[in-house]
Amino acid sequence: MFLTSNGRDKAFKLIQYSIRLYLLFHTSLTASRVLRRPTRPPWELGMIKRLESTASGFSFTRKMLLLFNWLGPLTAIMAQQSVPYSAEVTTETSKKTTRPFLHTVLYAPPPVLLEMVNAAADDIATFSRLGLLGKKTGERAGRFSDWCWLLSTLVGLVENGVERQMIGNLQQEVESRLYSESMTGATSKSKPKSSKLDERELSRLQKQDYWLQISRAKLAMDLIFVSYDLFKIKRAKRSVQTITGLTAAILSSAKLYDRHKNTLMKNISLTL
């Protein structure tokens, strides 16, 4: 998991927002009447500054890890550029025609386009932080990236809702079949093969629905986080963004871990 850039990004994000959560609690506690002091010890102030610098460093490291992340969506779009000339294969090698790149981009799936544009704008903002581009250019690119993030999050929530509805319908069909078979009085030993397959299918659908709920919660956290930046909401900004950022990091890390675990288990089963 940590061998991939995505896995390292999730690990750094967990550390980054864990530090910010500690700083948030520390600030709240030291501001309370019970623990308030007229002066803070120098070592404590130095520690707070170092932790804030560390959290900012992890944020910048994550930006650097995700540089040129737009190459993935671009590759997917370029793969759609070459299409078969005809559905009928008249020769051993079917003739192919190449669409213009602009035509391919315009007809690419919106989520892929948003991901590519978002990553490109994020790279421009990162280059600005490195001093390669102007500050105003970086700020505009960062804001544009936030808008792309907001739109992609909304699209993801819509897709998530559609997928959950489809899975819910499939679950109802499988459950109705299992109920009909159970009414026939079949025991565990006399269950038909189709019934056992339905039970496996139901278990698979329930697991898929569970991870879709995790994805929906993560998207909701992203939506809250980016809304504070885009709409310049000041009230409890630090607290809300810290909690939502850490929650999103935990949920996305759990989903990524499950994906890598399933891939590893499949590879092990193939070797046995």
Rank of each mutant, 00 (worst) to 15 (best):
Ile224Gly: 05
Phe68Leu: 13
Tyr228Lys: 05
Ile167Pro: 00
Trp149Val: 01
Ala141Phe: 04
Ala55Arg: 04
Ser94Leu: 07
Ile233Gln: 04
Gly57Glu: 09
Arg200Gly: 09
Asn267Ile: 10
Ala108Trp: 03
Ser176Ala: 15
Met47Leu: 15
Gln16Gly: 03
Thr153Ile: 08
Arg143Ala: 06
Met221Trp: 00
Ser94Pro: 04
Thr242Val: 13
Lys49His: 07
Asn160Ala: 09
Thr263Ser: 11
Val174Pro: 04
Val34Arg: 12
Ile77Ala: 09
Phe25Pro: 00
Arg143Asn: 11
Pro109Arg: 14
Leu102Cys: 12
Thr30Ala: 08
Gln208Glu: 13
Thr54Gln: 08
Glu159Leu: 10
Thr271Pro: 00
Ala254Leu: 07
His260Gly: 01
Lys136Pro: 00
Ser18Thr: 15
Ser32Glu: 08
Lys13His: 06
Val34Ala: 08
Ser188Cys: 01
Leu150Ala: 12
Thr244Gly: 02
His260Asn: 10
Ile268Gly: 00
Glu52Leu: 10
Val112Cys: 04
Pro100Asn: 13
Leu14Gln: 11
Met78Gly: 00
Lys191Thr: 11
Gly156Val: 03
Leu223Tyr: 05
Ser5Asn: 11
Leu23Phe: 12
Glu44Thr: 11
Ala217Met: 10
Leu66Val: 01
Phe2Ile: 13
Leu3Trp: 12
Glu44Gln: 13
Thr54Lys: 02
Val89Arg: 15
His260Pro: 01
Leu66Phe: 04
